[in-house]
Amino acid sequence: MTSLQLFFQQLANGLTLGAIYALIALGYTMVYGVIQLINFAHGEVFMVGAYGALSVILLCTAAHLPWPVVLLAAALGALLLCGGLGGVIERIAYRPIRRAPRLNALITAIGMSFFLQNALMLCYGATDRQFPSLIPSVRWDVGGLSFTGMQLLIWGSSAVLMAFLQVLVMSTKLGKAMRATSQDPVACALLGIPVDRIIAITFVIGSALGAIGGLLFGLYYGTINFHDGYLMGMKAFTAAVLGGIGNIPGAMIGGLVLGMLEGLGAGYLSSQWKNVFAFVALVALLLFKPTGLLAERVAERA
């Protein structure tokens, strides 16, 4: 393998991980966009998606269904579970304290994250859980680079979801209401937009995207652990900030950029320090361009 091929192979691996980051990052960025809350529980919601998908897959494979059906069922199950969970969390935890100081919402989010993480541990155990390899292991060689069916699935599904989200936000009435709420909730309420419902829907959509991220993450790595949500959430959050938090295309770009940075960093420098690259990149970017790659808004106060 030539050095150029190695470079592109690392890039492709990074993009695969980056696509998953991007899916999770969308949840962070959408919630931040409407209520300026760093939703620390989102990494755990993502993990709930992964475990929910695992349960559905185990059920369906026991019934000997063909793999595309199992995959669809798992995606649907995770989507509904996490969408519902996101809505419930917003309703019972965040809505009552929306008028309280912003730090309280942050602490609530962290408490929720503890709760969900431990609930997952109690339900599924603290050890690694094996994720069945659903996707047939096919491999294509194109110009000296090899792509797996898994990578294509991840790229394809995340591209479809992001396109769907873009259309939803930019060209539907609901999307218009979401954008309006993120700009000025009070004015929206005055104009008759049901702000509470819009915020709840934002949580539902963000969580559902995270659920698909969870399914893809499980399929890609083959094992999941209740701890994984923390690091993945942190990385996805980094990605959201890299792209400019509150900005939807920014989260997608941030996820891909972060994935590539990690892929290349792990390939060329040291895989031990790969988590440091993500944070160093983040800190460096924030210091030179504090609004992220695509600036949406500047947070003024804590």
Binding site: L282, L287, A299
Partner: peptide, 26 residues
């Protein structure tokens, strides 16, 4: 870090905390 404010400061300090911990590990 104090060139940025509010939530961005929170994120920079979060990154700092992680970098220090990983550095001590590595």
């Amino acid at each position: 870090a104090l060139r940025v404010r509010g939530d961005y400061l929170a994120i920079v300090t979060l990154g700092f905390g992680e970098i220090v911990r990983i550095a001590f590990t590595n």
